[in-house]
Each structure stands twice: as structure tokens, then as C-alpha cells.
Amino acid sequence: MTNFKTADICDDYASEVQVCQLDLRSYGKKRRFFGKIETVQVFEDNVLFEEALESVPEGSVIVVNGGGSTNCALMGDRLAGIAVSRKLAGVIINGCIRDSADIASMDVGVLALGTNPLKSKKNGIGERDVSFTFGNVHWKPGDYVYADEDGVIVALEKLV
């Protein structure tokens, strides 16, 4: 379902949602997406992110806390292609992507801080299925995230 609006959800559930205060840019073809949150916490290393892309349930939104680093990209067209093929709703990255022109034509939601052509390290350092905070939001596996042209909000349960 993509006929929700974050503004309407905020109007109806203002006391039950958190609004992300990070200025994320939309890169994927889907500008509006929602789903159950799966989390990955890494720093300039995308091995665990790729593992999550290959294993989380269809319809999920993977939230990657890359520590806000803009030194390299955590996702490019190959990883975005995995998200599309596995029918994920979207990816939200507190970090950068690359191959943005290719990702723009892919049928998946992708939000990130920006772009950087340099690929990340491949050491497999980080954590999956953990809670963390960025953008004034507490991101927790199993909560729901809603993203559209107006912003990103998080709720403890499915609201639409």
C-alpha cells in the first residue's frame, strides 16, 4: 500500500510517532514506502548490510546506521539490485550510496545522506538486529517506518 501520507499519519497519531530530523535524500524509484524495520549498525563497512539484504523478510525496510559517515558508500547498484529482487520495501542509510543514477531507476525506496563514489571496506565489522538512535529517532527492529516526500516517521506498530 502506498496511498498513505506521513503528514496524515502525524495528524492522526502525533503522540505515537517519532519524526526523523535527519535530512535524508531520496534516491530510489519509490518515493513512498513503509515496512517493518530491520537494523544494521556498521561504520564504513557494508558486509553485514549485504547479509541483511539477502536474508530479511520480503517487504522489510533495512535501516543502516552508518554513523553518518560520508567518507564512502555503503550501497551501490549491486546491493540495490538485491533489495529489488528480494522485494524489500526500502533502505534508509545514515551514510552514503553510490551509483545513484542507476538506483534512481530501481523499484525500491532508498534514502541516504548523500553520495560518494568510493566503496566501503569489507571487514564484516558491525552488528545486526540492534537498536540505535539517529535523526532524533530510536530505531528498533520490529517497529514500523513510513517514508514519503514529506519525511520519515517511526511507530511501534503498523498504523496503515
Score class of each variant (00 low, 15 high):
Met1Pro: 06
Thr2Gln: 12
Thr2Ile: 12
Phe4Ala: 10
Lys5Pro: 00
Thr6Asp: 13
Ala7Met: 10
Asp8Arg: 06
Asp8Val: 15
Ile9Gln: 03
Ile9Leu: 15
Asp11Ala: 13
Ala14Phe: 08
Ser15Met: 11
Glu16Met: 09
Val17Leu: 12
Val17Pro: 07
Gln18Tyr: 09
Gln18Asp: 08
Cys20Asn: 11
Cys20Ala: 06
Gln21Thr: 13
Gln21Val: 01
Leu22Asp: 04
Asp23Thr: 09
Arg25Leu: 08
Ser26Asn: 14
Ser26Val: 05
Tyr27Gln: 07
Lys30Gly: 03
Lys30Arg: 12
Phe34Gln: 09
Gly35Tyr: 07
Gly35Thr: 00
Lys36Tyr: 00
Ile37Phe: 05
Glu38Cys: 10
Val40Gln: 09
Val42Tyr: 07
Val42Arg: 06
Phe43Asn: 11
Phe43Arg: 12
Asp45Trp: 12
Asn46Gly: 05
Leu48Pro: 04
Leu48Glu: 08
Glu51His: 05
Glu51Leu: 07
Leu53Asn: 10
Leu53Gln: 13
Val56Ser: 07
Pro57Cys: 07
Glu58Asn: 13
Gly59Ile: 09
Ser60Asn: 09
Ser60Asp: 00
Val61Ser: 02
Val63Asn: 01
Asn65Ile: 04
Gly67Tyr: 10
Gly67Cys: 13
Gly67Ser: 11
Gly68Leu: 14
Asn71Leu: 15
Asn71Asp: 14
Ala73Met: 12
Ala73Thr: 04
Ala73His: 06
Gly76Thr: 00
Gly76Arg: 10
Asp77Gly: 01
Asp77Trp: 06
Leu79Tyr: 03
Gly81Tyr: 08
Ile82Gly: 03
Ile82Leu: 14
Ala83Leu: 02
Val84Gly: 04
Val84Pro: 07
Val84Arg: 06
Ser85Met: 15
Arg86Met: 06
Lys87Thr: 02
Gly90Val: 03
Gly90Phe: 01
Val91Thr: 06
Ile93Gln: 09
Asn94Trp: 10
Ile97Cys: 04
Ile97Ser: 08
Arg98Pro: 00
Ala101Phe: 04
Ala101His: 12
Ala101Ile: 09
Asp102Leu: 15
Ile103Val: 14
Ser105Met: 10
Ser105Ala: 15
Ser105Leu: 11
Met106Leu: 11
Gly109Trp: 01
Val110Lys: 01
Ala112Trp: 03
Gly114Asp: 15
Gly114Ile: 07
Gly114Pro: 01
Asn116Ala: 04
Ser120Gln: 07
Lys122Asp: 04
Lys122Thr: 14
Asn123His: 14
Asn123Leu: 13
Asn123Asp: 10
Gly124Phe: 10
Gly124Glu: 08
Gly124Arg: 01
Gly126Glu: 00
Gly126Gln: 02
Glu127Lys: 15
Glu127Arg: 11
Arg128Val: 04
Asp129Pro: 05
Val130Arg: 13
Ser131Gly: 13
Phe132Gly: 00
Phe132Val: 02
Thr133Trp: 01
Thr133Asp: 14
Gly135Ala: 07
His138Arg: 14
His138Thr: 10
Trp139Cys: 00
Trp139Pro: 02
Lys140Arg: 03
Lys140Asp: 00
Pro141Asn: 03
Pro141Arg: 02
Asp148Met: 05
Val152Leu: 11
Ala155Asn: 08
Ala155Lys: 08
Glu157Trp: 09
Glu157Ala: 02
Lys158Ala: 05
Leu159Arg: 15
Leu159Gly: 12
Leu159Asp: 09
Val160Gly: 11
